[in-house]
Amino acid sequence: MTNSMSNTEFVTNLVENQYKVLKTEVLDQYQIAFEVKKEDVHSILSLLKTSGWIQLSYLSAVDWIKDNEFEVVYIVFNWDKAVHIQIRTRLDRESASINSVLPIYPGCKYYEREAHEFFGIKFPGNPDYEKQLILENWDDIPPLRKDFDPRQYSDKKFSHMEYKNDFVNKDGKVSKQEAREKRFSDADKLRTGGKK
């Protein structure tokens, strides 16, 4: 246990001594997160790669629509010093673009392509990042953005099954379902303070 604690300390020292870190979070003994500036991402990642974090586990993005920002997340892993490191950086939502990490981690090729497809973040340096990978003939905004509503899109494009109302309300009482829905909407109103 002491050994792995020193692992996270080792990482913290390694990164914080050389770069300005906006925020450090130690999630548990096997995981640590750094929030850094966009300019530092590549040099931190190459530093980590030379210190043994040779595997890029995951690369994706989060859409913080209220801050009008995208957050790009790189997760790297070292098999000898078992620590997952999250490197997070924020990009402007309107002109989201960050240089590809392809020269450092060749495995990022398809992760970046997917991030472009689902968020619209540009990755200059990755040769094929603009091609579609998962979707085909997509005709709307990138689907994982928060302002995209899949229900609306689905209603527009695909017909839904229509069920017939083949029952009658005999004694004229309010049906249980309607009552329940009313109760739910009342509860929602209470919870959100009448908004939406």
């Binding site: 999630l27 995981q31 997160a33 586990s57 995951y58 997760i75 997952h84 999250q86």
Partner: peptide
């Protein structure tokens, strides 16, 4: 669930 990030594998 409280605010936070996590990567579990």
């Amino acid at each position: 669930v409280p605010k936070g990030y996590a990567y579990a594998c």
